[in-house]
Design a protein around this nucleic acid. Structure first.
Length: 417
RNA sequence: GGUGGCGUGUCCGAGCGGCCGAAGGAGCACGCCUCGAAAGCGUGUGACGGUGCAAGCCGUCCGUGGGUUCAAAUCCCACCGCCACCGCCA
């Protein structure tokens, strides 16, 4: 939720943000109106409550003769208060709805839609191969690392088994990622993958992304699509005594992939279930932009260790989630399709998400909303796919990046069994 | 799954239906004392909303949501969470 006081002071900033996102600026005026309406109603209810309270108090001190009259007055006021509180509840609901409808104010993101991103840099060269490249599923099948057929048999389309070297590769990546995170001062976390509705709502995933989310009807729980959800909700309702706080969460991630039929259907680039190591930071608002850069640097560092060529893009406003003020993606080269594929993504949610989750920091003049940021350290399935493709050799073996070897019994290459 | 108990401020902990935002302690901050510190003493110490330039004033908040009442932390109902024991499963 955006800061209402800031909105009152300068609604044009928010209107401009809406326009840059390709979203409706009228939502801003609806919010302003709802805010105004609520304040009027609150004043009225406050006054009535005050009167009623006073009259109520006087019941005790009233003489037996005046008592009936006082009671009658109190009763009448109670009626009015009830009515005023009903109006207040309605106004509150209206304000909340209008409030939730307005996404975060963008901070530096280029205006426009999905294709209007800006390439900030490219690290490494696009690789070339002097043999016909196989896609990751072919490479993975030769190695006995990926089994999508049995995945489909057991669980359906977009499910896969990671087997043998594939399974070991996953564990190696997790360990490498966690080791880097711990070195950087993150607290490692194994997070729940099932969360309550409040956690899902608070992080904003029941808005535009609602169709993407698995829900367990019988238990009123949701399967998370990213550990951002439990990591953000981790401190919900709390006042933090100190920041920064950095968590590196490992969890499985579940996505329905509704609306992506026919897209990335081969292999494990887009599946319903994968594991991920996610970075999550709580910082002061003033430090948020700097933290965002740090998260990006950690992501780049990790991709560097994997010896993968990639580029960094500044995602356009229209392609940001509702909580994000700015987002950077790292896209690795996918040889089989000769295109860039999103491997990591880091978002600065400023104080938008924290306001919704009621996460504050103890400040000089009382608590203030925290700023929250998230960034992928390693989305394992996809990373495996890219690793297998980029590091493949003509004979079907796969080069193991140096940094990964300590976690793979020192192997310098993956070989078919 | 069953039974019983509990849920109050940063923490512990009291709280006859009105005088309770809430006793008492601890912690923390400041001051006194001290060469300095500890101890001791004194003072202060929640959040949110409204209003005001401000000091302030008003309202709301005792797990959450309803209800009873002129009046609810206190009574009733539902839900959530925690603890204990039993059963079941690892």
């Amino acid at each position: 939720m955006i800061d209402l006081k800031a909105l009152r002071d300068d609604p044009d900033v928010v209107r401009a943000s809406q326009t840059a996102r390709g979203d409706d600026p009228a939502l801003v005026d609806a919010l302003l109106a709802a805010d105004e309406a609520r304040r009027a109603v609150v004043s009225r209810a406050d006054t009535l409550r005050g009167e009623q309270k006073a009259v109520s108090q006087s019941v005790r001190g009233a003489t037996p003769e005046e008592r009936p009259a006082v009671l009658e007055k109190a009763k009448a006021l109670a009626e009015q208060v009830k009515e005023a509180e009903g109006a207040q509840a309605e106004a509150d609901t209206g304000l909340r709805a209008a409030h939730l409808a307005v996404p975060n104010v963008i901070a530096g993101a280029p205006p426009g839609g999905v294709d209007d991103f800006i390439v900030l840099e490219q690290v490494g060269e696009v690789p070339s191969y002097d043999f016909p490249v196989r896609d990751h599923l072919d490479v993975g099948s030769i190695l006995g690392a990926i089994d999508t057929e049995r995945g489909a048999k057991v669980s359906g389309a977009r499910f896969a088994f990671l087997t043998g070297p594939g399974a070991l590769l996953e564990l190696a990546l997790v360990n490498l990622a966690m080791a880097q995170a711990v070195d950087a001062g993150f607290t490692p976390v194994i997070a729940p993958a099932l969360v309550r509705p409040e956690a899902m709502e608070g992080t904003g995933f029941l808005g535009a992304h609602a169709a993407e989310v698995y829900k367990l009807e019988n238990d009123d729980l949701y399967l998370v699509g990213t550990s951002e959800v439990p990591l953000a909700a981790y401190h919900s309702g709390e006042v933090l005594e100190s920041v920064p706080r950095r968590y590196a969460g490992f969890s499985s991630c579940f996505r329905r992939e509704a609306g992506s039929h026919g897209k990335d259907t081969r292999g494990i680039i887009r599946v319903h279930q994968f594991d991920k190591v996610e970075m999550f930071s709580y910082v002061g608002l003033a430090d948020a932009a700097a933290e965002h850069q740090r998260l990006l640097e950690w992501e780049k560092e990790f991709l560097g260790k994997l010896e993968l060529p990639f580029r960094v893009i500044d995602v356009a406003a229209g392609d940001l989630g509702s909580s994000a003020a700015r987002k950077f993606d790292c896209e690795a080269w996918l040889p089989s399709q000769e295109r860039w594929l999103e491997l990591t993504s880091t978002s600065n949610c400023t104080d938008f998400q924290a306001r919704r989750l009621n996460i504050r920091i103890r400040g000089e003049k009382g608590p203030v909303p925290a700023a929250t940021l998230n960034g992928t350290l390693c989305a394992i399935g996809r990373t495996i796919a890219v690793l297998l493709e980029v590091h493949q050799r003509a004979d079907g073996t796969v080069h193991v990046p140096l940094a990964l070897r300590p976690y793979l019994s020192g192997q310098s290459e993956l070989k078919p069994a």
